[in-house]
Computed example of a mutant assay.
Amino acid sequence: MPESSASAVGAGGRFGDRLAAAIAARTGLCLGIDPHPALLAGWDLADDASGLRDFGLRAVDAASPRVGIVKPQVALFERHGAAGLDALAEVLAAARAAGLLVIADAKRGDIGSTMDGYAAAWSASGAPFAADAVTLSPYLGFGSLDGAIATAGESGAGVFVLAATSNPEARALQTAVLGGGAHRGRTVAASIVAEAAARAAEAAERGSLGDVGVVIGATVRLIDYGIRPADLIGVPILAPGFGAQGARLGDLRSLYGDAARQVLASSSRELLAGPVDELGARLDAATAELGA
Rank of each mutant, 00 (worst) to 15 (best):
A239T: 02
G112K: 06
Q73N: 09
G16H: 07
V212Y: 10
V60F: 09
A83N: 07
A59M: 09
A120D: 10
L209F: 12
A83W: 06
T287Y: 11
Q262C: 04
A164V: 15
A260Y: 06
P65F: 07
A38H: 12
V67P: 05
R184C: 12
L145A: 13
D86T: 08
A189S: 04
A176V: 03
R14M: 02
A200R: 08
P2A: 05
D277M: 13
L31Q: 08
I69F: 05
A198Y: 05
L88A: 04
G117K: 10
D86E: 01
E195M: 12
G51V: 00
Q73C: 03
A204S: 08
L238W: 01
M1N: 00
L290Y: 15
G126E: 14
L162R: 08
A25Y: 04
A260I: 01
A157K: 01
I223F: 06
A157W: 08
L249V: 01
P275M: 10
P2I: 04
V67N: 07
T219I: 06
T114E: 05
P2N: 15
R282Y: 05
G112N: 03
Q262N: 06
L39M: 06
S254D: 13
L209Q: 01
A288Y: 07
A120F: 05
R186G: 03
V70N: 09
G153D: 13
L31C: 03
G42F: 02
D17N: 04
A204W: 12
A244N: 09
G126Q: 01
V188P: 12
G112Q: 08
P65T: 14
R108D: 12
L252F: 08
A157M: 08
V60H: 02
A63V: 10
T135M: 04
A203K: 07
S144K: 04
G185Q: 07
A25E: 07
F242G: 11
R18S: 00
S266V: 11
A189L: 02
G109A: 08
A259V: 09
T27R: 14
D146T: 14
A46W: 06
R228E: 02
S144R: 00
G234R: 01
A130L: 11
S266H: 03
N167L: 14
S125V: 09
D47M: 07
N167Q: 14
P229K: 05
A163D: 07
D258E: 12
G81C: 01
S266Q: 08
G51Y: 10
A22Y: 07
G274V: 00
F55L: 03
G141F: 02
R96I: 13
H183M: 08
S266L: 10
D61P: 10
A11V: 13
R253W: 11
I23S: 11
V91M: 05
A106H: 09
S144G: 15
A247P: 10
E3P: 11
A260Q: 13
F129K: 15
R53P: 03
A230C: 06
A127S: 05
R199W: 08
A93P: 12
A49N: 01
G117R: 08
P72D: 08
T151P: 12
A218Y: 03
A124K: 04
T219H: 00
R248K: 11
L100D: 10
S268Y: 14
G207A: 11
G250Y: 05
D251P: 02
T175S: 15
G280W: 14
G274D: 09
F77E: 11
D44T: 02
A21N: 10
